[in-house]
Structures are given as structure tokens and as C-alpha cells.
Design a protein around this nucleic acid. Structure first.
Lengths: 141, 141
DNA sequence: ACACTAACAACAATGCTTGTCAACAAGCAA
DNA sequence: TTGCTTGTTGACAAGCATTGTTGTTAGTGT
């Protein structure tokens, strides 16, 4: 994801207005590697800006997604997560106990569908989810 | 997934009762490769058994999952899908237009997390989702 | 056949996400 | 600056998939 100033320019270029709420969300997401849910972004935004609405956060996240500045992940945790890292191609490691998500760079080759099964199909995207437990959660089981 | 008679035995052994509703669901799932949603299972079950409730289908699917007889998939389509194929390790090919899901056997090696990123973490499961379009849907775009 | 208790159907409720809409504020032009 | 236009905001409520509640029905082992 680009910086707050760059995003401001991009939004204006697209005819989207840059509101204090949106800037707050830009700032919260910049450099965030925690893959926050929309709800948690909302909570953090509310600390500074008590009147911001959840809907506004969803809307801004979707605008950022449409501009290709963030990726919206559904890892089956019930709610959607925001990943501002769109620069590096990567997959995800999910702790099914605490819900924490870690990025995993793509280091495996040959990850594609055997031709026989790819027939009549165009693959646009590959998502890999590693599920497990961080040691911290494992110890408390 | 095992056959209806085997499942009947297994359920009884576990102290679970085998009701006509559950048997209907067993029969619907046996050999089903369409990865149905719970809702579509419910619709099909209702054809034979008009009073069956959606809750019952959810409950039976979860019981089957707990016994390891089916796998419950969340491919980010909004609702959960039931996969009775637990015998062959495989991944999934999803058409994001029509929602159809195809099984893909595991033919790639070395699909694991680089040690550096696996530190402090135990990986239990790897899920790969190939997203794209079947030619049929592609043509109509 | 009996008693015990799990499972049923109907209903309501949850959680996440989106729609509605009146009031408002950002951007633009003069 | 000023005023106009239009996108944005935020309170509220609705939508969807899934789960909780509850009185009743019906498998199960004896």
C-alpha cells in the first residue's frame, strides 16, 4: 500500500474525496502487518475519532481494494481481513486458536493445476492458507 | 465418506441416533462431487421430506465432520460447502462466476512454509484454492 | 413395550456486512 | 470567499448464513 500522501493524490485523481475519516484509516493501515479485521480497524479509528461509523470503514476498505492498494482476505475466520501488503506476492499462515495471521513469501515452484484438471478452466489466482497454532497457543491447549 | 450402512453403524457406536432425516442426508452426500452448500442439501432433502429443517442439515453435517466423514470448506463464497471426499488428499478449483468447485489432486511437492517463517508455529493443514473461470462462464463475459 | 434421552421442527437470535436516507462537507468555478 | 453540486457520513435497519432455544417427537438398549 502506498503512503498517506500518495493515497490522497490517488483518491483525488479518481474523483474520490479525502475525508479525515479516510485519512485516519490510511494511517492505521500504513505498515500494519497484523491483517486486521474491519471491526478492529473500526475500534482503533474510534479511539481518535469517536463518531466514525463502521460503514465508513467498510466503504474505505473497499475503495482501497478497488484501487488495488489493499487486498481483502477471507480466511474462514468469520470476518474479513485487510492486508495492506500488495507489493510482495505471498500466502498466509493462520493460527486457528488466536486468529493471528503471518505472511509467508512464495518460495515453492510448480504450484499449478495439472493440465488434465485445468482443461476448460482459466486460473486467475492461487491462494494458499497454512493453518495451525503458534507455540504460544499450543502451550495453553 | 463411507456408505450409508457403515455410517449408520458408526453413528450408533458414537451414541448418535440414526433418524430418517440423517439417512436422507447420508444418501444425498454419498458420491456427490458437486461440493454442495448446506442450503442446497436442504433443498434437495426437502423434496423427499418436506418438514426437514435447515438446522437439522447443519447439525448432521457437523456431526459428519466431527467423525471425519466429510470436510467442511469455506472458499470465501459466503456459505460453507460440504465435501464428502476425505479419502483422497486434494485441493480445489473454484469458478468465481458460477461457484462450481472441482477437485484437484495434490501433485506439487515442497509445499511447505520456509523454516524461517515456520518458527514458533505448528502447521496442521494446508489449503490451496485456485480461483478462475470455467470456459462456459468465460465465454459469457 | 418402556423409559431414557438425543434429535426434531419451529422460531428467534446472532454476527458480519450492506442498503437507505437526511444532513453535511469537499471540491470546483466564478 | 461564496455558493453550488455531488459524494460522503453516520444512525438505523435490513440481508444473509449460521446458531441458540424450547417443547415435543421418536430412536435406542433393556
Amino acid at each position: 500500500m502506498k503512503g498517506t500522501e500518495a493515497l490522497t493524490t490517488i483518491f483525488r485523481e479518481q474523483g474520490l474525496r479525502v475525508t479525515p475519516q479516510r485519512q485516519a484509516i490510511f494511517r492505521l493501515l500504513e505498515g500494519d502487518v497484523s491483517h486486521p479485521t474491519v471491526e478492529s480497524l473500526f475500534d482503533r479509528a474510534r479511539a481518535d475519532m469517536p463518531t466514525i461509523s463502521l460503514k465508513t470503514v467498510y466503504q474505505t476498505v473497499h475503495d482501497l481494494e478497488a484501487l488495488g492498494e489493499v487486498r481483502v482476505l477471507d480466511l474462514g475466520t468469520g470476518s474479513v481481513r485487510v492486508d495492506p501488503n500488495v507489493e510482495d506476492d505471498h500466502h498466509h499462515l493462520l493460527c486457528t486458536t488466536c486468529g493471528r495471521v503471518r505472511d509467508v513469501p512464495v518460495e515453492f515452484d510448480g504450484l499449478n493445476v495439472p493440465i488434465r484438471y485445468r482443461r476448460d478452466f482459466t486460473v486467475d489466482d492461487v491462494q494458499v492458507i497454512f493453518r495451525g497454532h503458534c507455540d504460544h497457543c499450543f502451550d495453553r491447549t
